[in-house]
């Protein structure tokens, strides 16, 4: 249960962190000349944050609790329809 809470906490925190990272004022910090690995700083920053969100979402998707089943009645009817 504690684990569920914690993973949900991260699930809630991640998009908020993402919003803060890509919104002004933080994003403006990187809006300047110069380059890293031969790429403009802002390009590296935006795509770096993007990639970080994807990786974090991947890890979270494994960690977040399995959802309780769709209500049984619905399942049964879906099955009947498939028949």
């Amino acid at each position: 249960m504690a684990n569920r809470r914690r993973s949900e906490g991260f699930g809630f925190f991640l998009p908020i962190l993402g919003v803060i990272l890509i919104m002004p004022p933080i994003v403006q910090l990187f809006d300047r000349g110069g380059s890293v690995f031969g790429l403009p700083i802002i390009f590296t920053y935006i795509f770096g944050v993007w990639l970080f969100l994807i990786v974090a979402a991947f890890i979270l998707s494994r960690w977040l609790p399995q959802q309780d089943e769709t209500p049984q009645r619905l399942e049964r009817f879906d099955r009947d329809q498939d028949r």
């Binding site: 699930g11 991640l14 998009p15 890509i22 935006i46 974090a56 977040l64 769709t70 619905l74």
Partner: peptide, 27 residues
Amino acid sequence: FTIYLGPTLVFVGWWFGLRKLVRVGRT
């Protein structure tokens, strides 16, 4: 890139928004 960052955020936060939408949509 804003056009893709917005949806990225929505999907990354699926547990609190989209999941409920899909659950309601299905039930």
